[in-house]
Amino acid sequence: MTAPPGLIIFLNGTSSSGKSSIAAELLKILDTTSFHLPVDAFHAMRSKRPIPPEQLQDEIDRAVRGFHRAVAGMAAGGNTVVVDHVLSRPWRLADCLDLFAPEDVVLVGVHCPLPELERRERARGDRGRGLAAQQFARVHTHGVYDVECDTSGDSPSECAWKIKDFLSRRQGSTAFERLLTQRASMPAPAPTGS
C-alpha cells in the first residue's frame, strides 16, 4: 500500500521568535492529525556526556542531518508534520531541498524584531543570551517563503490561522520549488564546520 503524500509545514525563524508557540496552535486547528517536530527535541535527546568544544559543531551538524531525515521519513509516510527549525546555515536549507518533496512543503518565515527577540531571551532564561542575535542576520537570507508571520504584532493563534488560511487556498509553485530553481548558487549540503 502506498501512503498518500505528506505535508511539511516548515516554520523557520530565530530562537525565541515564536515557532513552537505557533506550532502548538497549528496542531489545535489543522484538519488532519499532525505532528510537531522541533529540532530542539532532537538536541534534547542527546546523551548528557560532555562534548569538547572543538567537537560541538560536528555533533550539532550530525543531529541536524538526522533531524532532516526524520522529517522526510514522517512526510514520506503520509503524515502532516509541523517543523520548528532555524535555517541559520546555508547547508541546512540545501540538505532539506535534497530530501523533501518540494511540492509538499509550505515554508513559513517567522519574523520578530531583534530587540523583542532579546527581551524574550532574557525573560525565558533557558537559552544562551545572544543566540537570536547570532542567527538574526542569517536565518532568512534565502528570502523566499509561502507565508510570513511577524510575532511581534500577531499572536501565535493569529499566525496559525494565517498559515491554515494559506493551506486552504495554496496553488502554484511552492517556495521550495522556487528555491530549487536557484539551487546552482547554493553551497553543497555537506557541512564543513562553517
Rank of each mutant, 00 (worst) to 15 (best):
191 P>A: 04
97 L>S: 11
192 T>V: 08
189 P>F: 04
144 V>C: 01
103 E>V: 05
14 T>P: 05
79 N>E: 11
65 R>V: 14
31 D>C: 03
17 S>M: 11
141 T>I: 12
27 L>V: 13
34 S>L: 06
79 N>A: 15
169 R>T: 15
1 M>V: 11
53 P>L: 03
64 V>R: 12
157 S>I: 07
105 V>P: 01
151 T>L: 02
88 S>C: 04
163 I>R: 01
172 G>R: 10
104 D>A: 15
68 H>E: 15
80 T>H: 08
106 V>C: 03
94 A>M: 08
68 H>G: 13
25 E>H: 12
8 I>V: 15
150 D>S: 09
15 S>N: 15
17 S>T: 08
125 G>A: 13
54 E>M: 14
171 Q>S: 15
135 Q>P: 01
165 D>P: 02
61 D>V: 10
176 F>Q: 02
185 S>Y: 11
16 S>W: 02
151 T>F: 00
20 S>M: 09
31 D>F: 10
91 W>F: 08
187 P>S: 07
119 R>E: 12
144 V>N: 00
59 E>V: 15
109 G>Q: 09
103 E>H: 04
29 I>D: 03
160 A>C: 14
115 P>M: 02
180 L>A: 03
135 Q>E: 10
47 S>G: 13
43 H>A: 05
21 S>M: 13
35 F>V: 11
119 R>N: 02
127 R>W: 02
19 K>Y: 06
130 G>C: 07
19 K>C: 11
91 W>R: 08
150 D>M: 08
156 P>Y: 07
168 S>L: 11
113 P>A: 05
29 I>H: 00
50 P>V: 12
98 D>T: 15
168 S>G: 07
122 R>D: 01
191 P>L: 01
90 P>N: 01
173 S>Y: 04
48 K>L: 15
162 K>C: 12
133 A>V: 06
175 A>P: 00
